[in-house]
Design a binder for these strands. Structure first.
Length: 574
RNA sequence: GGGCCCGUAGCCUAGUGGAUAGGGCAUCUGCCUUCUAAGCAGAGGGUCGCCGGUUCGAAUCCGGCCGGGCCCGCCA
């Protein structure tokens, strides 16, 4: 269809004596709301401004001037729009050829070629296991990384573990007091959950024994001073937590190229702090804390170093970001972090700008909404969370049940693999189909289903297509002809397939994975309608059969490509 | 008090200046001796939070209000 748009644009450019250029016309072209109106519409509103005429008049005048070339089957002025009909066989031929020829590359672009970008996401705290909020963050991080990569960028996926600070000390304190030297092995528990239990325990105990809070701060002091016993305990508990995270990431399909630990960067900010003081941006306040003065920048001031000289979170980011750009020679750095940190990142980036780092403008916060439960906000301190491991297991179990209903004889290994693929697809698609900046509500009882606009629905559609292709066996895919894919079901599907690269492009430009989800849903719906209405393998004639198989193959290819960007496995059998 | 974000049918959601507001869930009606019914076809359900303004044209832009979320110097 891209070719068809160009064809229309060429015809229009000529008819308009180049008053609008081809590229401008392509940008203006839209798809009419109802297929019977046409395949593409040229809105005459812009032209109305230029020519000082009524748009409806222009569309009629244009229609009279244009002589239709091959490939354009019809043209129809409709009020302010001039609608075009593509020659149906050419739509079929061009679309299928392009998809089949490009295969896994179909939908990839090159506008990010030569760019190196780092995507930091997940950011777990080492005092407790991952929860639902992390899963959304991970889904967005993985998808956006894939989308960058498909635009030709070199992507480095990074996880920053917040393994330093008062929160860890709380878990450590509870363990020290009540742990009796237990280990995850002795407790037979996943190590990050083991650590998290002590965090919850601390928060329960501190209600009755407020002195624990002081003890936790003392522990942080000792940690900062390098107290051996404290450091050893910290090392032990942090390594348990990280070990647990890695298990969850592996299960979830999340792979990182780089692991950063706050404990390794928080004390490397001396140079940048000094620079800030020299530039007069960072000033000691009356209590002795170092504060970045940002009020004259329309932001609130931000403390960058405590009065006792110890670090806070931003101290780490100051050092780490500089390291990222210099060591990895990045063109751009993206932080996938919830919108509760919007102000924080504006402050951080403003500080870099005021310090004169030229990469400051290449920092971007991909801000996303929160995940809420029917009972309200997730609160890990109160244990009011949906645990990541639990929800993954729950969805995989649900998938197992569904598979067993349909397939009694499946072997255990295959069952486990499919359950995992389907369960994860349900979670990931659910997290990604809504615009990133919006909060989402997660009702564990009904939020994630396998029907309707879901990951499993897309997988199911793909499996249906693959099943046909498997039964069809080896067949030559046609390269020309395609006079038999001209019905409304085939044409709708073809147009959606042809539009897929535009959807990927839009999702890249707008940093919005949900656009790809929408595209997948539309393609799946169109395919299922086609599937219901037309037999492929038992088509009336060999010619029709071959053409329909080609269409099925193209559909499967596009679904696979799209699912891959969303980090969802395309499985051949459900 | 200030800043940012959100408000579309019982619920979830797409659409951010253009044609009849597009889907899904739930409800109701049909369709499995025919390529996977995790599907398909159809029905009902909308003052696009409210009020004003800009525009030939507003869910979309601007202003005000109402409701919700997040944030506002040594918490991650």
């Amino acid at each position: 269809m891209a070719e068809f748009k160009e064809l229309i644009a060429e015809v229009l450019e000529q008819a308009l004596d180049s008053k609008l250029k081809k590229d401008e016309i392509i940008e203006l072209l839209e798809v009419p709301p109802i297929p019977k109106m046409g395949d593409y519409a040229f809105p005459c509103f812009k032209l109305a401004e230029i020519l000082g005429k009524k748009p409806a008049k222009i569309s009629f005048e244009l229609a009279e001037k244009i002589f239709l070339p091959d490939g354009i089957e019809g043209m129809n002025p409709n009020g302010p729009y001039l609608n075009f009909f593509a020659a149906k066989d050419i739509v079929a031929r061009d679309t299928i050829n392009k998809v089949i020829k490009n295969g896994n590359e179909f939908g990839r672009h090159d506008f990010g070629k030569g760019q190196k970008i780092m995507v930091e996401y997940s950011a777990p705290n080492s005092n407790k296991p991952l929860h639902l909020g992390h899963l959304r963050n991970n889904c967005i991080g993985m998808a956006i990384s894939n989308i960058f990569e498909s635009a030709g960028m070199k992507v480095i996926k990074a996880s920053l573990v917040n393994d330093r600070g008062i929160h860890i000390c709380k878990s450590m304190l509870a363990y020290k007091l009540f742990g009796n030297n237990a280990t995850p092995e002795s407790a037979k528990e996943k190590p990050d959950h083991f650590v998290g239990d002590y965090y919850v325990m601390y928060n329960q105990m501190v209600k009755e024994t407020p002195d624990l809070e002081k003890q936790a701060y003392d522990m942080l002091q000792k940690w900062e001073k390098g107290d051996k016993e404290t450091k050893n305990l910290w090392k032990k508990m942090t390594s348990w937590a990280v070990k647990g995270f890695k298990e969850t990431y592996t299960e979830f399909g999340s792979i990182f190229d780089e692991w950063f630990f706050e404990s390794q960067y928080y004390n490397k900010a001396k140079q940048i702090l000094k620079l800030g003081e020299e530039k007069g941006l960072f000033k000691k306040n009356s209590d002795g804390a170092l504060v970045a003065e940002l009020e004259n920048q329309g932001l609130s001031n931000k403390t960058v170093l405590r009065s006792d000289g110890t670090s806070i979170y931003i101290t780490n980011d100051l050092a780490l970001t500089k390291h990222k750009f210099e060591h990895f020679k990045l063109n751009e750095s993206v932080w996938v972090v919830g919108n509760e940190q919007d102000l924080y990142f504006r402050q951080l980036f403003k500080i870099f700008q005021l310090l004169g780092f030229k990469w400051a403008k290449n920092c971007m916060h991909l801000s996303h909404g929160m995940v809420n439960l029917p009972s309200g906000k997730l609160k890990s301190r109160e244990g009011k969370v949906v645990d990541a491991d639990d929800i993954i297991k729950e969805l995989e179990d649900l998938a197992t049940e569904e598979i067993k209903k349909r397939n009694k004889k499946i072997n255990e290994k295959e069952l486990a693999a499919r359950s995992r693929a389907i369960g994860l697809a349900a979670i990931k698609f659910h997290m990604l189909k809504v615009a990133v900046h919006k909060d989402i509500m997660f009702d564990p009882k009904k939020s994630i289903s396998f029907e309707g606009e879901t990951g499993p629905y897309i997988q199911y559609t793909y499996a249906r297509a693959k099943s046909i292709l498997a039964k069809a066996g080896k067949m030559k895919i046609k390269k020309s002809g395609f006079e038999r894919l001209i019905g409304p079901e085939e044409q709708k599907l073809l147009k959606l397939l042809a539009n897929y690269p535009d959807a990927v492009k839009k999702s890249f430009k707008q940093l919005s994975p949900h656009i790809i989800c929408q595209s997948m849903i539309e393609i799946a719906e169109a395919f299922n309608t086609f599937y219901q209405k037309h037999k492929v393998l038992k088509a009336g004639s060999e010619e029709i059969k071959i053409e329909r198989i080609s269409l099925v193959q193209a559909t499967a290819q596009v679904l696979k490509n799209g699912l891959e960007l969303l980090d969802i496995e395309a499985i051949e059998k459900m």
